[in-house]
Amino acid sequence: MEHKEINLNLRIWRQKNAQDKGQFENYKAENISTEMSFLEMFDVLNERLINEGKDPIAFDHDCREGICGMCSMHINGRAHGPWDGTTTCQLHMRAFKDGETVTVEPWRAKAFPVLKDLTVDRSALDRIQQAGGYVSVNTGNAVDGNSLPIDKTKADASFDAAMCIGCGACVAACKNSSAMLFTSAKVSQYALLPQGQPERNTRVMNMVAQMDKEGFGACTNTGACEAECPKEISISNIARLNREYLSAQFSL
């Protein structure tokens, strides 16, 4: 692939810790290869800041191949930046024009307090999972894997929901900071499988209750979560959650 070098003006949120108010600071990124990933551009910038004796920018990242869900930047108003279906770590500098100003902010939500710079605390998502995102089966209890055939279309739909990487982009993108897409993906994964049936009702009730307790907003069906989800998880899962929730509420 042909590559060129570009210069960017970066406007990056700096915040010392959770107590600090925080503010934007401007940086210049020069001679950035379009072959670089967005986070590699941050590596280059941080290397420079360290050499200049300044504090490098803290940001979450780990696998850098779009699957661990750790990276979390709000770039030019978009969760994970301008490319659809892409995590920040898989966003490449080809997406930007020479001379462009790029604003980078942390995920913003009451339920995701900023820890430092672009790093936020997403443990609320873990607690939603703890509220019911599992099948209660102890190790060793299982029957043979093929003893229970599962309709391929349902298994595939379950997998589509299970692809969620728990990055929180849905929350970041939602104007209400709602975690419905995340929660519904988990609920759907199990609701579609026979293994999930015994705990179906309690699961959805408990997970939704936990979601509300964590301070996430309510869903108003704007669809922004689906548009920003790096795994392109469908809001049909939210409809399924709603269905599950209603039927759980009316079940005897």
């Binding site: 599992y134 099948v135 089966v137 190790t139 060793g140 209890n141 299982a142 029957v143 043979d144 894997g145 093929n146 229970l148 055939p149 599962i150 309709d151 391929k152 298994a155 595939d156 379950s158 997998f159 299970a162 994964q189 199990y190 499988l193 293994q195 999930g196």
Partner: peptide, 23 residues
């Protein structure tokens, strides 16, 4: 190795399946 597959299926891991519904 076989028990691992059984355990994961029981946990609700959505493995790829054939049209007949088997793994």
């Amino acid at each position: 190795s076989g028990s691992i597959i059984d355990q994961c299926v029981a946990q609700g891991v959505p493995f790829a399946r054939e049209y007949g519904g088997l793994l």
